[in-house]
Design a protein around this nucleic acid. Structure first.
Lengths: 206, 206, 206, 206
DNA sequence: CATGAATGAGCATTCATTCAT
DNA sequence: GATGAATGAATGCTCATTCAT
C-alpha cells in the first residue's frame, strides 16, 4: 500500500491541475503548463491519465469521495465531540472545511455552468451533502420514504438557500474582498449572520 | 442614429458569442466558431472587435447597462402598475427577467470564478442590483449615510442569500431538471417557497 | 498642374510608407499601418496604388528621378558655385544630400539584399550616380567608348569603395552612434578622413 | 556530447531558416515555409525555438561565435602557414571565407538596416573582426591604450572602407553580375584592385 | 475620391496527443 | 515510469485586397 513514485507523480499532477484549473479554468489551462508547474515531463501526464479530461474527472471523483468521507466521519466522530458544538460553530467548521476545497469547488462550479457540457458534478456532489444533511435534519428513518416532490422540496431548499450561498461565499470571497477592499473576517461574520437569519432560521420551520 | 450594416454584424457577433460562451465557456469557444455560427468571415470579427477579450467585455458592458436600465425603468414605470403586484409576483417577474439573461449571467459567473482572472463583473453587476434593492428596502434617503460595515452587512445579506440563489437557480435549473428528471415548473415553485421562507422572510427583520 | 486632393493623399501615402518601410522593412509594414499613419482610409490606398508593391515601386522611381535630377542640377547649377567648393566640401555636401534620402536608401538596400527578389534598384540607382561621377572624373567624351571591362573596372571601383561606404555611413550611423555611444559629428569627421585617404586619394591615380 | 535527434533537427531548422531569410528576408519568410523546407512539422520548430525571433537570434549568435573562432584560429594556425601568404592572398582568402557566410551576413545586414529594430548585430559582429584586425595592424600591445577617439578613428576607417566594401561585394555580387551580365571572377578581380588601391594602400599610412 | 465593411488566405503560435527510447 | 521529440489540428490574429456606397 506504500506510495510508489508513480503515485506521487500522479498526485502532484492532480494537485497542480486543481490549482491551475481554478485559476484559469479547464479550457484555459494547457497540459504543457500542468507539466511545467508539476516539474515533470508532459508525456508523463499521458502515462497517468488517458487524456486531459481524465484529469478533471479524477479531480471530481476525488472531491466526491472526500466529501462523502468527510460527512460520514463527521457524523461518526461526532455524537460526542461534534454535538457539543453550537449550531453556529458547526456551520463555521463546515465553511472552514469547504474553504480548503475551494479550488476544486470553483472548477466544479465553472464546468457545471457550461450548458453544452454534460457535467453535472456540482449537483451530484452537493446532492451527497444535502442528502446527508436532510438525513440528520429530518427525523425520518429513510429518505426513500419521501415522495419525489417532498424530496425535491427539501433538496431544492437546502441546495439553493443552504449550499449555494456557502459555496458562493467560499469561491467569491477573495474577489469580493478585493473589489470592496473589505476585510475577509468581517465578510465572514456578516455572512454568518445573514445565513443564520435566512437558511438556518428556516430549519426551525421544517 | 440608424443602424448601419456594421452595427448589425456587430450585434450578431455579440449574440452568437453570448450563446456559445454560455455553452462552452469563453476559452472553450473559438473565434472561428463564432464566425461560422454568425455566418460571417472570421476577419470580420476583428474588424469589429480588437480581440477576443473585447467581445466578452462588450457583452459584460451590455448586460450591465441593460440591468441598470431595467432597474430604473422598473421603479419608474412602477408606482402604479408595479406596486399592485404582490411581493411574490414581483419576485417571479424578476426571475423571469433574469431568465432571459441567463446565458450572459452564466458567462459572468464562470469568468468571475476564475481566480487568476481580474474579472469581477459578476460582483460589479450584482452590486447595481443590490444597491437598488437596498434603496427601496431601506427607508433611508441616502445609501451614503450608511457606515461601510452597515453597507457591507446589507450588501452581503442581499448578495449571498438573495441574488446568488436566484442566479444559481437560473443558471443551474436546466441541469437540475435533467439530472433529477424533474419538472422545471415544480422546481420553480419549490424554489419560490424556499426563497420566501429564507431571504424574503428575513427582510421583515430589517 | 495644381495639386488635387488626390495628389496630396498620394504623396502622404508615399511619405508615410517610406518612413515605415525604413523602420520595419517592406514585409514588416502592413497596409493597415500605412493608412492609419497617413490618417486615411485603407481603401484609399488601393485607389492610388494598384497593390502594395506599387507603393514601393513608386518610391523607387521617385528616388531615382530625384537623384538623376539632383546630379544634373548639381553639374549645371555648378560651374561657378559648385566648382568653388573644395573637394572635401563637395563630398560633405553630397553626404548631406544623401542623408535626406536615407530612409528610402535603406529600403532600397534591404530589398536589394534579398536574393530571392528581382529587385536590383540599389544597383540601378547607384549606377546613375556612378556614371555621372565617371563622366566628370574621366576626361573622356563618351562613356560608351570604354570597353566593357574598363567600364566595369571604374564602376566597381566607384560603387564598392565610393558609393557603398557613403550609403552605409548614412544608413548605419544612427545605430553606430547608439551602439558605441559616440557623437554623430565626430563619426562624420572620422569617416571623411578615412574616405579621403582611401577612395578620394585613389582618384588621383586614375 | 553526441548529437541527439533534436540537435540535428535544430540545426536543420537553422540551416533552412538562414537560406530562406536570405532569400526573402525575415518578415517575408513564414514559419510554415521553414518547416516545409526542413521537412519537419511546424510545431517542431516551436519545440526547439520559443518563437520566430529566437531562430534569427540563434543564427546571429552562431555567426558571431564562428567569426570569433575563425579569427582566433586564423591568427594561431598562422605564423607559419598564414604569414607565407601574400597580403593579396590573405584578402582573397578572407573574401572566400566571408562568401561562405554570405547568407547570414545578408540577413544581418537587412535587419540592421531597419531603424525600428534594436538589432545592431551587424555592427557588433563586425566589431569583433575590426578589433582583431586593429590588433594585428597596429603595433600596440593593448587596444585599451587607445583613446576613445583614436579607437573610433581606426574602427570607422576599417569598418566603412574595409569591411563594408567586402560584405557589400559578397552580398551584392550575384545581383551585380546578373544586372550587368558580367562575370563573377572578373568582378572579383576588379574589386580586388579597387580594394587594394583604397583600403589596403591606406594601411601603409597608419 | 474616400469610407466602412467584408473576405479568405495566411500568419505566428499553442494545443492535445503519441511514441520510440 | 519518465523523457525528448514530434505531429497535425486548431488557436487567435493579421494580411493584402475588394467593393458597394
Amino acid at each position: 500500500m506504500a506510495k510508489t513514485d508513480g503515485d506521487i507523480t500522479k498526485e502532484r499532477i492532480l494537485q497542480v491541475a486543481e490549482e491551475l484549473f481554478a485559476e484559469k479554468g479547464f479550457d484555459g489551462t494547457g497540459v504543457d503548463k500542468i507539466a511545467k508547474s508539476a516539474g515533470i515531463n508532459k508525456g508523463s501526464i499521458y502515462y497517468h491519465f488517458k487524456d486531459k479530461n481524465h484529469i478533471i474527472e479524477s479531480l471530481f471523483e476525488k472531491i466526491m469521495d472526500e466529501i462523502a468521507e468527510h460527512i460520514n466521519s463527521a457524523s461518526n466522530a461526532g455524537e460526542v465531540d461534534h454535538n457539543k458544538l453550537s449550531l453556529e460553530d458547526k456551520i463555521r467548521s463546515e465553511i472552514r472545511y469547504m474553504d480548503q476545497k475551494k479550488k476544486i469547488i470553483s472548477v466544479l462550479f465553472m464546468e457545471t455552468l457550461k450548458s453544452g457540457n454534460p457535467t453535472d458534478s456540482l449537483i451530484r456532489c452537493m446532492e451527497i451533502i444535502v442528502k446527508k444533511e436532510l438525513n440528520s435534519t429530518l427525523k425520518i428513518d429513510k429518505l426513500e420514504n419521501l415522495s419525489e416532490d417532498e424530496f425535491q422540496k427539501y433538496m431544492i431548499h437546502e441546495f439553493f438557500t443552504g449550499i449555494i450561498p456557502v459555496i458562493s461565499l467560499i469561491t467569491l470571497k477573495d474577489k469580493w474582498c478585493k473589489y470592496f477592499n473589505y476585510d475577509e473576517d468581517k465578510l465572514l461574520e456578516h455572512f454568518m449572520e445573514a445565513f443564520i437569519n435566512t437558511h438556518i432560521k428556516s430549519h426551525a420551520d421544517l
